[in-house]
Each structure stands twice: as C-alpha cells, then as structure tokens.
Amino acid sequence: MLEIRNLTKSYGDILALDRFSLDLGKGEVLGLLGPNGAGKTTLISILAGTLADFSGTVTFQGRNLFADRALKNRLGIVPQDMAFYDELSAMDNLLFWGGLYDVPRAELKRRAAELLERVELAGRAKEPVKKFSGGMKRRLNTAIGLLHHPDLLLLDEPTVGIDVQAKVSILDIIRNAGASGTAVIFTTHQLAEVETTCSRIAIMDHGRILAQGTLDELVRIVGERDIVEITGEFAAGPFSEALQDIAGDGIELLSVADNLASLAVAATEQIPRIMDRLFRRKLAVTDLKIKSPNLETVFLKLTGRSLRD
C-alpha cells in the first residue's frame, strides 16, 4: 500500500535521509526505532507533505503521494509538536481539525465523542485544553489524527515525555488502528513500546534502515550469544586496542564508549580472557553484567549507540 523508494534529503551538509526505502501493507504497524538525529522526523515530515526539496518517490495506494491532493484525506498525521488550540476545548479542537477533512458534520461529531471516550477525555471535553496535563494533551494530539479514519497513520514520537496511563492509552489507539486495517508508522526511541505494539520493527540511523523484521527476527541478528556490559575507568580507545586481537574470535565489540562497553560473546567462558587483557593494560573494571540478547542489544550492535543517547 505504501512504497517508499530512495528518499534522500539533506540539510546543507547534513544527510538526514540517505536513499531510504520501505514497504508497508494494510494493517501493518511499523515501529521506527532510531536515536536522536536518525532522520525519523524528516521522514515523517516528507510523507506528511510539509517538507520539500528531496529526491525519491513515494507511492501510496498506487498513486504518487505528492501529486495527488485527494490522498491527503487518506493520511493521518500526529506531529511531534502538540499542534492544536489551547484556548479551545478538546471537542472544539476535534471538530475543527477533523472538519478540515471531508467528513460529514454529524459523523464527525459522533466520531469526536467516541474518540474522546477512547482516550479517556470525555469528562473534560468542554474544558479549554490549556488546563490539560501533558499526558492529556498528547492523547488529544493523537486523537486529532484519527478523526477521518485514515488509511495511513503517521505518528512522530507520540509517547514522548508522558505518564504511563497516557502512554498505555496511546499505544492502545495505535494497536486498534492497525487492527482496523490502518497502516501505521510510528517513531520512538523507546524499545518497550515497539516490543508490545508493533507487527514490524525497523531500526534506523544516519538516514537509513539498518535492519527490519519482527522482534524475533531482529533478536536473531545478535544470535544466540550473551551480552556482556562492562563498566569501569577506561577510555574508549585503549579499551578497543586491548581487545583488538581477540575480537572476532567469538567476541564482538558491540559498542565502546568511555567507561562503558558492550560485547557479544559466544559463551561466558570467554569472559576471563577478556578480563585478563584488560588487567594487563591496567584498565580498571568496576562492574560486569551478563544479559541475554534483546532489542536493545540489537540496537546497540546496529547503531553502536544506546537509545538513551
């Protein structure tokens, strides 16, 4: 239903999207994971039609997304900014923003009331939005994108900086949308969200997708190895040098930063060898954790960065 081919966008010298390609089917919920600056917002903005000067093509329901104005009615966007009118009530906001799409007025009112119920704002529908908490505003921001029952829903960091209740409510909406046949792309840098919400996960950095698949498929990238996380007093350079000659021999450096490094090892028996090298170089280790592979380690392996960067 959605085919993105070789989207490339640069801001001056910064390459924000680098030949980005992706396919998405009806009802699929894709979690787009990426650290800050990966290009997530740039991608969503291009698809939403609010960013120009890029190359590549996007086909949506068999038509060029950017040439066919009628397609805007099939597209739902939930921007990263909370863009609505603070001085108006939640209901008035829904009726205004929903009214910009081609939905009959009576139907719009019905859907607005129903959505307010679903995001648990029905009791405060008539209050000015400026009295809302951050979480309530996020829920409203999300609801606005759904009024016209889009075929493709794009959400940019819909759960950033909110309480658990609001997060659960928003993830619920995303799952529901997928279940009712809407294709969804939502960006996040929270692993737990994609693990529970998405039918497919894509990990992106530097403007391109590094890997994608189901959770299981992605975890297999790291393989049946254990993850060793080492904390200590060392700089990244000497640490990498110390392990240079044994790396590859069942040991893989996933990410190395000052005072913190992650390695994948085929077996825990290799840990003493690692410690031996570090002691010989007088690199002090203060803590060592052994984990089984998960999305986080996949992310670490692919991007060399932790999501919390």
Partner: peptide
C-alpha cells in the same frame, strides 16, 4: 508552534 504545518497535512 507547528499548527501551520499540521494544517498543511490536511486537504
């Protein structure tokens, strides 16, 4: 504040 951008995503 991003409202213009949101409006431009609509018809």
């Amino acid at each position: 504040d991003g409202k213009l951008r949101r409006m431009l995503t609509t018809p």
